[in-house]
Structures are given as structure tokens and as C-alpha cells.
């Protein structure tokens, strides 16, 4: 098992499979929230489902809508389980707080999109600022 330290985050302890991209995130710009997929044609994850995944990405881009949208996505049941970023922004933190979704950023070991591989199984503990990769050592 690999343990990655980060800044203390927001939300509950969560586990699931990683969906990793060296790209940025916006719920408004990038997602078809009805179908639960990345819909922006130029996005690295275009066409991929984000439902129940732990999204691992570089940073957050664009607008304020993500805050409300995360809450609606969580309540609607078509939502990632958690978000890991190199750097989050204010809107992601606010949205995670309202939706009670796990969010962590600022990893001590380097670029989180390189530290975690697509399909890794992760345990995210925002309160302790720890992420465990349980399928690798």
C-alpha cells in the first residue's frame, strides 16, 4: 500500500477507483451531468463515465456553477465519489462542503496525476490529509 500525504481536505472518508487525467475540471464546462460522462470534446476524459469514480486531476477551471452542481449531482446519485487535485480552488471547496463530498489537494509527494494511476483503488481520508493506494506498494 502507498500512502500519500496532502493538505487536510473536506468531506467524509471515501474509497473507490481512480479516474486520472492530466487535465482540469469544471462541472459546467466539461460534463454531461444527465448522462454522467465527460462531454467536452477536447477533454482528456471525453466520453468517460465519472459516476462513483475518484477523479484525480490537475486543477479546477472556470466558473462558480460547480458549487451548486456538485450538490445536485450528489443528490441525484450520478456523481464522483471524491476529487483529488494538485490544487483545488475556492469553488471546489465550497461545492464539496455543501455536497459532503471528499476533496483533497496539495500533495507532498508531487503531481497527484502521476502518483496515482488510472484504475488504482484509493482510500481518501480528508480529515487526516491522507490518501492510500491500496492495490500497489
Amino acid at each position: 500500500m502507498i500512502t500519500l500525504a496532502c493538505h487536510a481536505g473536506i468531506g467524509p472518508r471515501t474509497e473507490g477507483y481512480a479516474l486520472v487525467a492530466r487535465d482540469n475540471f469544471s462541472a459546467r464546462y466539461d460534463l454531461d451531468r444527465n448522462r454522467g460522462i465527460f462531454s467536452r470534446p477536447g477533454h482528456v476524459l471525453a466520453g468517460r463515465s465519472y459516476r462513483d469514480m475518484i477523479l484525480v486531476m490537475n486543477t479546477v477551471k472556470g466558473g462558480v456553477a460547480t458549487a451548486w452542481m456538485l450538490y445536485a449531482m450528489k443528490q441525484g446519485g450520478v456523481c464522483p465519489r471524491a476529487f483529488l487535485f494538485n490544487t483545488a480552488n475556492a469553488i471546489m471547496a465550497q461545492g464539496a462542503a455543501l455536497a459532503d463530498l471528499a476533496l483533497c489537494d496539495r500533495f507532498a509527494g508531487g503531481d497527484i496525476t502521476e502518483l496515482v494511476r488510472d484504475g488504482d483503488y484509493l482510500v481518501v481520508d480528508p480529515a487526516r490529509g491522507l490518501v492510500q493506494v491500496t492495490n500497489r506498494s
Binding site: V64, T66, A67, W68, A90, I91, Q94, G95, A97, L98
Partner: peptide
């Protein structure tokens, strides 16, 4: 100001 999403 920071970006304050609707809830914040």
C-alpha cells in the same frame, strides 16, 4: 473577493 459559488 474570492470566487464565491452560490452556496457560499
Amino acid at each position: 473577493s474570492n470566487f464565491e459559488g452560490g452556496p457560499s
